[in-house]
Write a protein that binds this DNA or RNA. Structure first.
Lengths: 263, 263
DNA sequence: AAAATAGTGTCTATAAGACATTATGTC
DNA sequence: GACATAATGTCTTATAGACACTATTTT
């Protein structure tokens, strides 16, 4: 941390305490614009799982700073919306309006120099979308090549992102501290997979237990034992057989749906 | 969410909205100083454990809003310091300078109306201090009765705070959304107790296994089985016997210290 | 010896991992 | 029948909880 010049406390002049009346008077005299304030943004890390790949949505920046590089979708928080509302607005702009999409606050990044323009504090969110919604988002975004789903891979403990346009391409360097945000996000969803039901946010209404296991294996980046996995899921009372099944060139698999239970 | 008067979009001259190229991207690169920005603060939830009690540090507000009520120590984030630096500055003001105190970002609270003065986004932190440091902080703060350690109790799943000055007193209503912050913080440290070594942050250098168990029981709010607890701790390779022991009117207890191991 | 807490041994229930086996469809 | 995946059974191992028991100090 570099030492910096001290600044005066961003507080109004001291006043004698107490009283609702004085509260009001104070409110009127309070001039919030007196002090320098950071900008506040939200950045959203949108994940999806498809074809045994964990993907994150990145958009290409068209303006400086970092013009031409990829980054997370984000935007400024408006004065009259909550942080989650801002995140949902940013999310809706990319994958379509959907108040039911899983969205969770991740962490707030606020290093003084994380944005070269000015001080920006960014509240990062994680969103999880199904591959169906992913497909719709892809259709809207890919033609312009200004955005895309990048596969998250892990090699020797380090995460790397693989371009959907060119798997051999050099790994994209993300704008700002977005690489750190993605890494934090992956750690978060891996951890939460074990003790919550977020995995179902990455699956359609009806799915097989093998589908579910694939999601776990893809996010965690390792194989799981089938028998133990099924026991655990069924004992947890989080799925219910729908009666339907999916057929292929083999024994049909029962279809389940997610139900809130003991968890 | 209360409806609010619409504001002009924080958007520069109209541009052709070309499909995937959303306003957010453009906004990111725009001269942010032109738009209204929230204030950014940090609030710190300082916990300590002493005499089988979980306590949180609250300070009495001397200025509006909420003058006269208790709240978490907090302050504005300066333009040239990181969020954690701001939190550490606020912390040092209350319990003394200490770069080694455990401090962890908790969550960011940003409801538009959480502060009646103006839009304030608060990044909340959790700090854990030993009872030794607590004692020093108490000595500095209590005489003025402008601050104090409030016991966190749980009744039927609801948290309540008990005044150190008057245990029978009505439960203090905290300023802003600080009650929610404390609740979130307690949930966080309870969860992390199970899979991290944060408990040691609440103990001095040397401690007995019973001391350690008391910390767990106090934070979790329930009794633990002694044999299983000791097995788990010793098997985890996180403590090392120092050779010393603590004597009382009974069999002496071995003293241990925390060591980073497999965990 | 009594009191008090430290510390251990053992049994059982539960869950996870490894591995093998059976089941049921398509081709 | 070959093949592929679904689904289950079983054995072993690790761990948590309950409970009883032993150990070592002070008074």
């Amino acid at each position: 941390m570099t030492p910096r010049a001290p600044r005066p406390e961003p507080r109004p002049a001291p006043r004698p305490a107490s009283g609702a009346r004085e509260d009001e008077e104070f409110l009127r005299s309070y001039d919030a614009s007196r002090f320098e304030r950071p900008s506040v943004t939200v950045d959203v890390c949108v994940f999806s799982v498809f074809a045994a790949r964990l993907s994150v949505l990145l958009v290409k920046r068209t303006e400086p700073p970092f013009a031409g590089t990829f980054g997370l979708p984000g935007g400024f928080v408006r004065m009259d919306e909550s942080l989650e509302e801002a995140a949902r607005r940013v999310l809706a702009a990319k994958v379509g309006d959907a108040p039911d999409i899983y969205l969770e606050q991740l962490y707030t990044f606020g290093a003084p120099d994380r944005d070269p323009r000015t001080r920006v504090v960014s509240v990062a969110y994680v969103a999880l979308v199904t591959r169906e919604r992913l497909a719709r988002a892809l259709a809207a975004l890919e033609p312009a090549r200004d955005a895309g789903w990048f596969e998250v891979r892990e090699r020797r403990g380090r995460l790397s992102l693989v371009s959907p346009f060119d798997a051999e391409a050099e790994e994209p360097r993300l704008a700002f501290d977005h690489a750190e945000i993605v890494e934090t996000a992956v750690r978060r969803i891996r951890g939460k997979l074990e003790y919550t039901t977020i995995a179902f946010q990455l699956l359609p209404e009806r799915f097989t237990l093998t589908d579910l296991q694939r999601v776990y294996e893809t996010v965690l980046g390792r194989k799981l034992a089938k028998a133990a996995f099924r026991r655990r899921v069924l004992d947890a009372d989080v799925v219910k057989a729908t009666g339907g099944e999916r057929r292929g060139a083999h024994r049909p698999a029962k279809l389940y749906k997610f139900v809130r239970g003991k968890e």
